Amino acid sequence: MESQPLLPAPPSEQDSEFWVRLRRRLVLLFWVSYAVMCAVAVVLVMRSYEAPPTNSWYQRRVLCSYLDLPEGNHTDLRRSIRGASLLGCGGVLLRMADMRSSARNLVTEGHKYDIRILLDFVLSEETNRSQEQTVKDAVRRWIQDGVSGFSLSGGHREALMTVVESLEEELDGVRGDERIVLLPDWLGEEAAINKSRFLRTRPVRDWKPWEANQSSEVMKTAWEVSYLTAPELQFMAVTLPGTIKLSLSQTHPPPSWLRPLLLLRHQNPALYAGWLQTLSENSTHNVLSHWGCSTLLIAINPSNQSQVFPLHLPNYTASAKLLFSTQRGHNGGKMAEDGVLLAPREAQLLRLTPQK
C-alpha cells in the first residue's frame, strides 16, 4: 500500500495564472471604485458650494460720489479717486464739465488704485435733439475710454429714455457685463430693460423688510445713502445685498467704522449676494443674511439705551462670533452663547454657528 505524500502537490501552472489574474482584477476594481467615489464627492461639493458672482463687482464693492466736488476739475477728480480707494470703495461717480472731453486719463488713474470710474451727468429740461446726439457721441467715446458705468438724472422722460436706448445699443456691443447704468427711480420699470446692468436708484430709507426675500428686486436696485443719513441706516445700507451708492462730502469726514466695514463686505458674500431674513416685523434692524453655509446676524440698536439681543431665535439657536462693531473697544473675535449686548446706537455684525 502506497503512502500519501507529506506535502500537497504544487498547483498547476493554469491554476496559478487564474489566481494572478483574479488578484489583478480585484486590485484594479478597488482603485477604479476609489476614483469614482472621489469624483462623486468632488461633484457633490461643487454643487453644494455656490460661488459668489464673478462679474458683479458693483455688488461686492460700494460705489461712492462726492456731492460737493467741483465739476470737471481734474485735480479734484483725481483726489476723489484716491479718497475712494482709501475708504475701501470699488467705484466712484464723477461729473465731466465738457461732454467732448476724454475720460481715458481718469480711467488710467482709477486703475492705479483699483477704482472703477462711472460718469454722472444731468440732462437739462431743455434737452433737444442735437443735445441728445451730443450725449450719444459722448457715451460712445467714454465707453471706448473704459468707463465702467453711468448715472443718469434730470431731464424729461423722453430725453432720458432716448439716452437709455442709446446706452443699451452701445453696451450690447461690449463683451461681458462689467458696465452698469444707474437710473432715477421715478423713471419707472419701463426703463429697466430686463437687463442686470440697468439699476434703479432708491433711497435706503425706502427699504422694506418684506422686500428682502425678493432677491431679483434687490439685485436690480442701487440703494442710495448719504453722509446725512442716520448712522444705523448707513450701517444697514452697507450690509444689504445688491448695489450701494454712497454719497459723501469732503467737508464731513465719514465715520471711522465705515472703511473696515466696506472691506469686510468685500470678503463676505453673505453681505453682497446673500438673501435676508427679517427677525421681527416691527423692526428692520435685526436680520439674518445667508449665503451657502454662512449665516450673518446684522444687529442694530437705534435707541439711547443698552439692549440685549437674544440668540435663541425662532427655530434657530446659535452661538455668535463678533466680526465687527461700530462701538470702540468691542473688538472682533468675541464669542457669545445666550445673547448679544448692544450699547446705545451700536451696530454689530456677527457670524452665527448653529447649536445642536
Rank of each mutant, 00 (worst) to 15 (best):
A299P: 03
A347C: 15
S226H: 04
W291H: 15
V20I: 15
K356F: 07
P302D: 01
L263K: 07
I193D: 11
E178V: 07
L258D: 10
Q250L: 06
D15S: 08
T353K: 12
V340A: 04
E109N: 10
T75W: 08
T243A: 02
L296T: 04
E232W: 11
C38A: 14
W57K: 13
L77C: 08
P314Q: 05
P5M: 02
L77E: 15
R197T: 12
L29F: 05
T295H: 05
L160I: 04
W207L: 15
P255H: 00
V107G: 03
P53G: 04
P354S: 10
F18V: 14
H285I: 10
E281V: 12
R23T: 12
K208G: 06
I115D: 03
P53R: 05
E158N: 06
G329K: 00
W207T: 13
P354I: 14
R21Y: 04
N105D: 14
P209K: 13
G188H: 05
A159N: 02
V238M: 03
D185K: 11
E17C: 00
A35S: 13
W31D: 06
Q214M: 09
V20Q: 10
G110V: 02
Q131I: 10
G173N: 07
L87A: 03
S80Q: 07
R24P: 09
P269K: 10
R79D: 15
L199F: 04
A222L: 07
P70M: 05
Y66A: 08
P53A: 02
A347P: 05
F324T: 02
I143H: 05
K112M: 03
G176C: 01
D177L: 14
Y58R: 08
